[in-house]
Design a binder for these strands. Structure first.
Length: 850
RNA sequence: GGGCGGUUAGCUCAGCUGGUCAGAGCGCCUGCCUUACAAGCAGGAGGUCGCUGGUUCGAGCCCAGCACCGCCCACCA
């Protein structure tokens, strides 16, 4: 770009520049490291694989920004860095989308048949799978796009099969008839983690059951249709009202089945009537009670959600309809004692939103306790650190109470179980069985089963590949809280089991971004904000900065202001760079050549900023990283250093070569510092630096240079800054015109090398004499005496003086009181007391000056 | 029911192991088109740090209780 162009572009335009930068990054290959060395030397992160059919949402954008900061930061520290990329086949989500598309054509999945359906799903993936990939690029995420994985790829599928077979052979995976969460929406069993509780208004029916030999017992239920599957009535063992009934026989209404009356601690005597109908076939609690008492397990509702033949006259009816008919029948028999409105929580499928139908089904399960132990240990002993710390305990609690995992799904899109049946025979293996007559289990695995292998299956496991050696274990896993169990815990278990090593050393659990009004961001609520829109509007740097700045260890509301702050930062940096690039002499390379106190000051401040950034990255404190960067660029570089440098830069007699080199050096240091957070604008500016220096993103930078830390320079310039602020405030208060220079005399120590700055910033015409001052402005180390001749309001100046005195006097009083307190001087640390004494002395001298 | 986190300026949030910690950004007010940036610059107003007790020489910061808010987990008809 020509000098003229740089001159004219007073505003940073991300939408023009960013796509071009992405192309340069991708073409350079710096995101794709060769698999060399070991994981101990390298840096890697495995991205939580987005759903292949999905599009970028705020969670992706935040997590992408976080991981990219980590990845870019470490890449720039010279580490071989790989951000493992790929997408997830997302069983239910994708299958649902494809089914919806088919429905629009008037075709059902059944009509199409399995093979054709799966073909359509792959086609769907080809068409839509690149959307989210492009969106990650747009965000600036420096993923290894050249090495993209998909959880249904052949190699990945082989790893999945291998793991399944291995765990089966170990006895951890088994088939069982068990009560599962049946999702009528997807017509599949789902795991406990995919079930959410939702509050609904129900009716609690009180139904009278006869007891053989006379008497009756009234039970309460919200699901009268399951009465048909009752196999017992239970009361609390200590409930005297029913003591005589225990051991007896009750008769189930309508079906006239005789069932035992049992006593079980589970029953709460105070609830309802204190008597509970037991339906092991359709209720998880009852299922457990049933197993405890050896009760019969009867199913009356089938997987199609309709009553089955066992339901007799109600067979074929949808369960809800059957409920009404059962209630009517009970009423006709005079068995309905009462009905009361009842609000309670019921299980609902997280995916389909439909109410879960608990039913007994033949499914594949995985026992988790054995794998959990080492995974608990790994977190306990710190091999895996979970941040923030609160999430650690959540993880441990869950792991310690872990239950079997329902693995099989009655879907078509996914990893089909490596299981074959022939009559009573079952074959589980990597290879199909020999011989005829074998039929493969039609079910597929829970998507999360394959996701659990992500950190090593993406690197070529079970082969011992160079990539596996170079990048496993990964360094950090960054994710939202909602998949801590669903995914993170399972990765730790699988990693330990199959790699013998934890899959990552740190887990960072980031914020959930809520809508600005505090509600959940969701499409259906209309509260969603599309990060891609925001990128188009404000630039990717702005969105990244904003998301990082608003993130914390808890959930946060989306803050458009923070994104705008990011946009302004990018613009500020752009203009500061224009100032530097257009102001320096030609043919000078960036180099530290401090000549003045401010040159040393900024060099030192840059080191502090670097330290801040390093600390923040190490502590996963991205908010402070972003805001600290902003503070440095605005509050130090632009507001002060660039302003201090201007006279020298415009002075043809000054040593502009040294200044140019130094200014460019400060600029490059700033760009390197800022790049992980705002990569685009920094890369763009980098390209305008004189000379050929490659891509900033691929640069290995020096760490903090302790030799450039300069406490003295910081103290001197810091004092000057404080003085300027005091003087500006005074000027404003006394009504001085901003442009007017006032005669003044310095009566303070410590401004030898900042005097010119003081005079220029505060618009003072300093002289050594000039008679009696007409006003005095206290500054650190003394005061500036204002001499006659300035056009200010003496009354205002006097008021200002009085206010200042009053303020100082009250502070003195407070300080004196504190020091007079025996308790304070005796018990507070000597250091604190001493500091207080110094403060008091300073206040007293200030009072004299004002 | 259990657990975790929150309650600080009009809004969104910082405030590390108790002692200049009462802050930032946005918004608001005042003034400036100062040769990098007016999507800028300078200055300013604004908070009894949810409530009540307690510990301490000293408490947004520690303890207890309470009140709201959010999230996670949980099989209560």
């Amino acid at each position: 770009m020509s000098r003229e162009e740089l001159e004219s572009r007073k505003r940073y335009e991300p939408s023009e520049i960013e796509p071009r930068i992405v192309e340069r990054w991708l073409a350079s290959g710096i995101f794709h490291p060769e698999p060399e060395g070991t994981a101990a030397d390298n840096y890697s992160i495995a991205v939580p694989p987005p759903n292949v059919t999905g599009s970028l949402h705020m969670g992706h954008a935040l997590n992408g920004s976080i991981q990219d900061v980590l990845v870019r930061y470490h890449r720039m520290r010279g580490l071989r860095t790989k951000w493992i990329f790929g997408t997830d086949h997302a069983g239910i989500a994708t299958q649902t989308k494809v089914e919806q598309a088919l429905a629009a054509e008037g075709v059902t999945r059944a009509q199409l048949g399995r093979e054709a359906f799966v073909g359509r799903a792959w086609e769907w993936r080809r068409e839509h799978g690149s959307t989210i990939v492009e969106q990650f690029k747009r965000l600036g995420a420096s993923l290894d796009y050249e090495d993209e994985r998909f959880t249904l790829d052949e190699a990945y599928a082989a790893a999945v099969t291998r793991v399944f077979v291995g765990l089966y052979e170990k006895g951890l995976i088994y088939r069982d008839r068990y009560l599962v969460n049946w999702d009528p929406g997807s017509c599949s069993a789902i795991s406990d983690l995919e079930v959410v509780q939702e509050e609904v208004d129900d009716v609690l029916y009180h139904v009278r059951y006869d007891v053989e030999g006379g008497g009756e017992v009234v039970v309460a239920t919200v699901r009268p249709e399951t009465i048909l599957a009752d196999t017992a009535v239970a009361v609390h063992p200590g409930d005297e009202r029913y003591a005589s009934l225990v051991g007896g026989t009750a008769v189930i209404p309508l079906v006239r089945r005789s069932v035992p009356v049992i006593a079980d601690e589970y029953v709460r005597p105070e609830f309802g009537t204190g008597a509970l109908k037991i339906t092991p076939g359709h209720d998880p609690n009852d299922f457990d009670i049933g197993r405890r008492h050896g009760l019969e397990e009867i199913s009356v509702i089938g997987e199609d959600g309709r009553m089955n033949e066992v339901a007799g006259q109600f067979a074929g009816l949808p369960a809800l309809e059957a409920r009404e008919r059962v209630v009517a029948a009970l009423e006709a028999e005079g068995r309905l004692v009462a009905r009361e409105a009842y609000r309670h929580e019921v299980p609902v499928s997280h995916r389909s939103g439909e109410r879960i139908e608990p039913l007994i089904s033949l499914q594949w399960f995985m026992r988790m306790d054995e794998l959990a132990s080492p995974a608990i240990e790994a977190v306990r002993d710190g091999r895996v650190r979970i941040h923030p710390d609160g999430q650690r305990q959540v993880y441990l609690d869950w792991m310690e109470n872990i239950r079997p995992w329902t693995l099989s799904r009655q879907l078509w899109w996914g990893h089909q179980l490596p299981v074959w049946y022939r009559g009573e025979e079952t074959h589980v293996g990597v290879d199909p069985p020999r011989g005829d007559g074998w039929e493969r289990d039609p079910d597929v695995l829970d998507t999360w089963f394959s996701s659990a292998l992500w950190p090593f299956a993406t690197l070529g496991w079970p082969e011992t590949t160079p990539a596996l050696r170079a990048f496993y274990p990964t360094d950090v896993l960054s994710t939202a809280r909602d998949i801590l169990f669903l995914w993170v815990a399972r990765m730790i278990m699988m990693g330990l089991e199959f790699m013998g090593e934890v899959p990552f050393h740190d887990v960072y659990v980031h914020s959930v971004i809520q809508a600005p009004d505090g509600r959940r961001m969701s499409k259906s609520l209309g509260t969603g904000i599309d990060p891609v829109d925001e990128i188009e509007r404000h630039g990717a740097d702005a969105v990244r900065f904003g998301l990082l700045a608003m993130s914390s260890t808890q959930d946060v509301r989306y803050s458009a202001a923070k994104v705008e702050q990011g946009q302004q930062l990018a613009n500020k940096l752009w203009n500061a760079s224009r100032f530097a690039l257009l102001g320096v002499v030609e043919d000078v390379d960036p180099a530290p050549r401090p000549e003045t106190v401010e040159d040393r000051w900024i060099l030192s401040r840059v080191q502090r900023a670097k330290r801040m950034m390093a600390d923040c990255v190490a502590e996963f404190d991205f908010s402070h990283a972003a805001l600290g960067l902003y503070e440095f660029v605005y509050g130090e570089l632009c507001d002060w250093y660039l302003e201090m440098v201007k006279p020298r830069l415009y002075d043809q007699d000054a040593d502009r070569e040294a200044l140019s080199a130094h200014l460019l050096f400060v600029l490059t240091e700033t760009l390197e510092l800022a790049h992980p957070v705002i990569p685009f604008v920094t890369e763009e500016i980098w390209s305008h630096l004189p000379g050929e220096r490659g891509l900033l993103a691929g640069r290995a930078v020096e760490g903090l240079e302790p030799a450039w830390l300069d406490d003295e320079a910081e103290a001197r310039v810091g004092r000057a800054i404080e003085a300027v602020r005091a003087l500006r405030g005074w000027r404003d208060h006394v009504g001085l015109q901003p442009g007017e220079t006032v005669p003044a005399r310095l009566a303070a120590e410590g401004y030898d090398d900042t005097l010119a700055h003081l005079a220029r910033f505060a618009r003072l015409e300093l002289s050594a004499d000039g008679g009696d001052p007409v006003a005095s402005v206290p500054i650190p180390g003394g005061a500036v005496e204002i001499l006659a001749g300035g056009g200010f309001d003496p009354g205002a100046a006097e008021r200002r003086r009085a206010e200042r005195r009053a303020g100082i006097e009250s502070e003195i009083a407070r300080s004196e009181g504190k020091l007079a307190n025996q308790g304070f001087t005796a018990k507070a640390p000597a250091q604190v007391v001493e500091a207080e004494r110094e403060k008091l002395a300073r206040l007293r001298s200030e009072l004299e000056a004002v």
